[in-house]
Amino acid sequence: MTMQAVQALEHGSSSVRLKAALAVGTAPDPSLVDTLVTRCAVEPDFFVRDMLTWALTRHPAAATVPRLIGELRSERAQARSQALHTLSKIGDRQAWPAITRELLTDADDTVARTAWRTAVALVPAGAEGELAGVLATQLGRGDRETQLSLSRSLVALGEMIEPALRAAASSPVPLVRQHAAATERLLHDPDAGFALAVEEAKRVRALGPAATAQEE
């Protein structure tokens, strides 16, 4: 059965691979953990990757977490991002020390975004401020999707991000200041859309804080 499962997980048809991952998750087999993790690094289909992650969460954390932590050092970006995603789903805080600054500032945007979400999910009590400081170094980075992901991760940490945002507000880089202002608005007004928060930050930057004060 194990060899059949391995062959099915590597089959040319994504539907066959999806069914195989479902089967492994339904009847967990620790001997297949390495195969599941290895497959995550190369699987091209999003839905199959998601099922592989689910299958891994069905296995004991003692069998999966160390193997996934090892993947965080992979040279393959997908291996790192998928391992991070799976660790966030498992939710074992013992993985926290493996969420390094290098991962939080990874050159690959997908890896970095996943690292931000995973770090927020696993951060232990008392370490939120330090995490916020590292995340704030990424303000102004990437496209709108990346910036929104970072803002959401920061906001999820709560009011303790305010010192980091204040520091970023004095950055010599306009895009960093704008992103920090938009994130602060989302923190205090969760219902505000990110695009609206960005436009407001641009307007305040262009007209100065007095413009907002005059409207109130």
Rank of each mutant, 00 (worst) to 15 (best):
R80W: 00
T146D: 14
T100A: 12
S151D: 04
L150D: 00
A95M: 10
S149C: 10
A121G: 07
P124V: 15
D108F: 02
L103S: 11
S149F: 04
A77F: 01
Q94P: 00
E102G: 04
T105M: 11
E71A: 12
A169V: 01
V176C: 10
R177H: 04
S153P: 00
L135A: 14
R177V: 06
R177W: 01
E145K: 12
K89Y: 03
S88A: 15
V111Y: 00
L104I: 14
L157H: 02
E71F: 07
A79C: 11
L72V: 08
G158E: 14
E102R: 10
Q147I: 09
S88W: 08
R113M: 09
K89D: 01
A63T: 09
G126V: 06
I161W: 06
T105W: 01
E75G: 15
E159L: 04
T64G: 00
G70H: 12
R73P: 09
I69C: 12
L103R: 06
E75P: 12
L157R: 00
L150F: 03
T64L: 03
L103I: 12
V173P: 07
L87H: 07
A77E: 00
V123S: 07
V134H: 03
D143P: 02
S151R: 03
L139D: 02
A115E: 05
R141N: 08
S88T: 11
R73F: 07
V123I: 06
A169S: 10
R113N: 05
R152H: 09
I161C: 11
S171V: 13
R67Y: 06
D92M: 12
A95V: 08
R80M: 00
T114D: 12
A107R: 15
A168E: 11
A63E: 14
L175S: 15
L84A: 03
R152G: 14
S151V: 03
W96F: 10
R73A: 15
L131D: 05
D106M: 02
R76K: 14
